[in-house]
Amino acid sequence: MKIIGLIITVVTGALLIYAAADFPAWSDPASPASTYLSPHFIEKTMEETSVPNIVTAVLADYRGFDTMFETTVIFSAGVVCFFLLRISRREEEEPETRYYRHVLTGVTIQLKEGYKMPPSADFERIDAVWTPPDLIIKTGCRILIPFVQLFALYVIAHGHHSPGGGFQGGVILGASVILLAISHDLRTAVRRMSEKLIGILCAVGVFIYAGTGALCLLLKQNFLDYSALAGVLHVDPITARSHGILIVEIGVGIAVLATMIWIYNNISSAGRYRQGL
C-alpha cells in the first residue's frame, strides 16, 4: 500500500507542479482571478449591500445560496453523527446500573438494573467513571464562559464590519458550551441544553436562513433576494440587504452552535450521553 500510495502521490504531485508552471505569478494584481470578478465585488459591495466587510457580503448575499448549503452541510453532519452514534434506550442491552452521588458528602450509591432514585435535591446522578471536576478548572471556566458567549454574539452581530459572522460566532458559542462540558461534565452541559433543544435549534437555524430566502420568494422576488424584505422591514432595499444578511447570519450562528454541541455530545460520549470527555 505504501508503494502504491507513493506512486499515486508522486504522479499527482508531478501533474500539479507541471500545471502550476502556467499559473500567473503568485500575488500578481493582474491575474485573471483578481481582475475579472473581484473588482465588481470590491467596488460595488458598499453601494449594493451597504456592508463594508466584502467577504460577508459575498458570503451571505452574492453567494448566499452557497452559504445556505454550507449551513445545511453542518446541519447534516450533526444529524449524521446523531444518527450514527446515539444509542437509544431500546437498543441498550440490559437495564443500566445507576449511580447517584450525595452532593454534600460525596457518598456514591449504586442502584442496579434500572431502579431509579426518587427525585431528590441532595443526590445527583453520575456515571461509573465519574471523576470529581477539578476546582481550578471549574471555577476558571465558570468565569470565562459568559465572556466567551458574549464575544461570540459580538462576532455574529459585527460580521458586517469586522471579520467574523454567523459561522465563527456560532462555533465560539458552541465551544463555550463544550467548555462547560469539559470543565464540569457532560451531564451538566446536557442539562443546560437538552438534546431535544439542540436538535430543534439545529433545524431552526437553517430554517431561519432558508425561510428568509423563501420569504423573499413569497414577496415576489427571487429566492434569497433580500431586497424583497424592504417592505417588511420598512427600509430601503439596500439596507434591507444588509439586514437580510444579519438575519441569515443569526440563523447560521444558531445552526452552527447547536450542531457543534450535538456533534461533541455524540462523539465524546459515543452516543450514550452519560460521561463525556
Binding site: I137, G140, C141, I143
Partner: peptide, 13 residues
C-alpha cells in the same frame, strides 16, 4: 486579561 485568566487554568489543567 483573558490570557491571565486562562493561562494558569490551562497550565493547571
Amino acid at each position: 486579561v483573558f490570557i491571565f485568566l486562562a493561562s494558569p487554568t490551562a497550565t493547571h489543567g
